[in-house]
């Protein structure tokens, strides 16, 4: 196992997962048909989001590890920073979205 490549693949997939959860959450709130589809998929929208996000992380991890051949120090550092920023911006976006939704700002 190439350990730097494992870290790279995991961090990049964590970034993709955070982005996916953020976009899916906001779009599903604005699109009742999508939220209903998520509810019907597993019985609860959150359970579906959990399974989909976990599945995306695992598949993305495997693909990133399999596809990317040369992972150097710069790429590992970049993937970690991407994971950190995706999570931080995702938290801010979700918090702002639900705050705006609560106060009827849109």
């Amino acid at each position: 196992m190439n350990k730097p490549k494992l870290i790279y693949a995991s961090a990049l997939s964590a970034a993709v997962t955070a982005l996916f959860v953020t976009v899916l959450t906001i779009v599903a709130e604005l699109n009742p048909a999508l939220k209903d589809w998520l509810k019907n998929l597993s019985g609860h929208h959150w359970t579906s989001k959990s399974w989909l996000s976990l599945g995306l992380y695992v598949v993305s991890f495997a693909l990133c590890y399999a596809i990317k051949h040369n992972v150097d120090a710069r790429k590992v550092g970049m993937s970690l920073n991407l994971a950190i920023w995706s999570a931080v911006l995702g938290i801010i976006a979700i918090l702002l979205f639900f705050t705006a939704h609560n106060f009827g700002w849109f």
Partner: peptide, 20 residues
């Protein structure tokens, strides 16, 4: 509307970050 909705969704970020 704000806290619970945010909490339940940002929790989904944790496992991939923790594994990384």
């Amino acid at each position: 509307n704000i806290i619970m909705e945010t909490k339940e969704h940002i929790f989904l970020f944790i496992i991939p970050l923790a594994v990384s």
